[in-house]
Every structure is written in C-alpha cells, then in structure tokens.
Write a protein that binds this DNA or RNA. Structure first.
Lengths: 198, 198
DNA sequence: GTCTATAGATTGATAGAC
DNA sequence: GTCTATCAATCTATAGAC
C-alpha cells in the first residue's frame, strides 16, 4: 500500500509474467524467462512466489483488477449503454495488432488452462464473466432485459471468433469488416419505440 | 502402401499424437506420453520421426486428409448448398462434448502454435482455409457469389467463438442457442427470389 | 531480500546392441 | 524395427550464505 515510484519486485514479476503468459503462453514461459526480464536470479523468485501456479493466480488477479477498471471507465465515460457496448466492440480495433499476433488474452488463457486441466481455469474464465455481467447490464439498460444475458454471450462469442481467426490468418481487413457488422448488429438490438414487437 | 488389418507403428504414433495434441496441447505432450499410449520405447520413436516437429507435421497432414474426406462427404450427401452448410454448423452439436472439454481442434492448435511462434502455424491454419474455401463455394452456389468469402469467414468466426466460450464456461445450452441462431442466420442468407434486393 | 549452488525430475534426442 | 542405456539441457523447486 506504499506509494512509491519504483514498482516492488513482486509487482515487476507479475507484470513480466502477465506479458509473457500472453505472448508465449503459460506453460511455455519458465521461471528463467521471467527472471531474465525482471533481472533477478531464479532463486530470488521463490521468495515472492512459492510455485508457478501462484504466479498464475497473481496474474489473473491483476488482470481482473485491470478489467474492472476498464469497465468502470467505460461506464463512467459512455453517455448511454449503446455507446458503452461500442467501447467493448472497439477493443478489437484498439488491440488489433496484439490480437493478430497473440490472440485475445482472455480467450487464449482459458483455452490453454482448459487443455492443461488446470485448477485456475475457473478463475481465468471469471474474466469472461466480468465482461459477461457488464455487457448483460448494458443490454438490460438498452431495454433488452429479457434476453440480456444471451445477447452478452452472443457478443462475447462473436468477439472471440474474430480474435481466433485474426490470429490464425493475420487478416486486418477481416477484423475491420467484422467490427462493422458487429456495430450494425448492435444498432439492431435497440428496441424500436413505435414498431412491431418482433 | 500395404493393406493390413493392424496399423503400422507410424500410424499408431500419429493417431496417438493427434489425440494427445488435441486433448492436452502440443507442447504439453511429451514423447514419453505418446510412447506410453502406443506402447513402444522412447528410443524406438526416433526411428519413425526425427523430431517432435515432424510428428506435428504428420498430425496436421492427417487432419487435412480427414477434413478433406469429411467435406467431400458433406458435398456428396447434402442435396443443396444450404443443407451442406448446415452440416458444417452441426459439428458444434455433434462434437459438443469434446468441444466443451478441449475446444475446437483447429482453433486451439492454431492458437497454441501462434503463441509458440511455430513454423507450422501456416500449415495448421491451412485447416481453416480448407473449411473457408469449401464454405465459400457453398455460399456461391447459394447465390451469394459476391460476398461468399466474407460469409464463409463470418461463419467460421461465429463457430470458433462458440467453441471458445463453450470450452471456458462448459455451457451446453449456450451451444444449442447459438447453433439455432446460426441456422436462422443461414436461412436469411439465401437471396429471396421475388423480394427487394436489400 | 537477494544471491549461489544444487537437487531431482523430465525434456528432446542419440548410440548401439539385438 | 525395437530395445536399453545414456546424453546434455532445461525444468520446478529447495537450502543456505550474505
């Protein structure tokens, strides 16, 4: 809780692990890799984290914090639910270069942990839940209370699909095209005031 | 090229590696794991494959062959392009249990190889291309020649998104719901004969 | 809190007997 | 074509000096 300019070694480790887990994957990242980035010895490592899984949990916790902050900011800055949901869709554009190289940090971590049958999979997919709950709220505010959760899951799935294919094909124009379609779809989600109910 | 009842050791290795790469991932699978399944010694291994990457290439080649066969079968059995595309969509239902546990074999392999910066990523994403080209053809036959490729990519992305979230959440009803929506979307893709052009 | 040294297991890969 | 024995490297993790 001390406010200092330099990050603590622990924070540096979590930051480095966060990036390496994203870029190379959890299992492919060794203590040696992280230690090299932070510039500490491997032995020193175990003073801060007893196991590799503990680092993973710390990384996930850090990402949860960052995500909460981002969602809160969208909530604060977006004037209406429609534009807030648009903020979500536009991560695909803002992070396009990273997504094309390494995929979505949430989706790829979940996928990897599922394959490893890792106990932290639940915590990792909790990141999805964060977005899911937030989107659900926005869709409800948009007047789609009844199917808000289905719409949230639908949008999450669409985003994940775009990320997977963008990563596999390295296709920039595909992302642009799909984002435009997603925005059109979003517009169509608002219930028309004086129109048929279907 | 001999026709025998028993599979050759090489074929057994590829089969075992195929399954393990899918269930656990490429990097998390060791020679020892594969050797245990096939019931050979690790040393014997290198008589058939010089490196782990060679096995990966053989696995991808095998998957390409299987996929080609599946697409040809859909082509032969489906009476019209619409029902053929439906065959594609319904893999999500047919392989639901496996997808919920291990994700899509095509998507997860591409994702992993992208993170490892592995030279075989291109070959792995070639599996996506196989589906892409096939779907493109079906959409063209459906009368959507102009945007056939965009529709193919769109459908691929939607499927991948469903697979990623089904894997992360282990949600069966979500898959069902999205598949129904995909089928409705597919129906809407057919150009109406006597209707407006938009 | 950071270091060196090292344990113990596993990794991908090789050599050579049968 | 299959085996055993083994290599060198790397991995996670520990012990103990400073």
């Amino acid at each position: 809780m001390t406010v200092v300019a330099d990050k603590s070694t622990r924070e540096q480790i979590v930051d480095a692990a966060d990036q390496l887990f994203y870029k190379r994957g959890f299992e492919a990242t060794s203590f040696a890799d992280i230690a090299k980035v932070v510039n500490i010895s491997r032995g020193n490592f175990y003073h801060h984290f007893k196991t590799k899984d503990e680092i993973l949990d710390a990384v996930i916790a850090a990402r949860v914090g960052q995500t909460r902050g981002m969602l809160a900011q969208w909530e604060a800055c977006g004037p209406d639910p429609m534009s807030r949901i648009r903020s979500f869709i536009h991560i695909l554009v803002a992070n396009q270069a990273l997504i094309m190289r390494h995929g979505c940090p949430v989706g790829t971590l979940s996928t990897e942990l599922a394959k490893l049958d890792h106990p932290s999979l639940k915590q990792a997919s909790g990141l999805f839940t964060l977005f899911r709950v937030w989107l659900r709220k926005q869709f409800a505010l948009l007047g789609r209370k009844a199917d808000a959760d289905a719409l949230a899951m639908h949008l999450l799935a669409r985003s994940q699909g775009v990320a997977v294919l963008a990563n596999a094909f390295h296709d920039k124009s595909f992302v642009k095209q799909e984002v435009r379609q997603l925005c059109e779809w979003l517009e169509s989600c608002a219930p028309k005031p004086a129109a048929s109910n279907r």
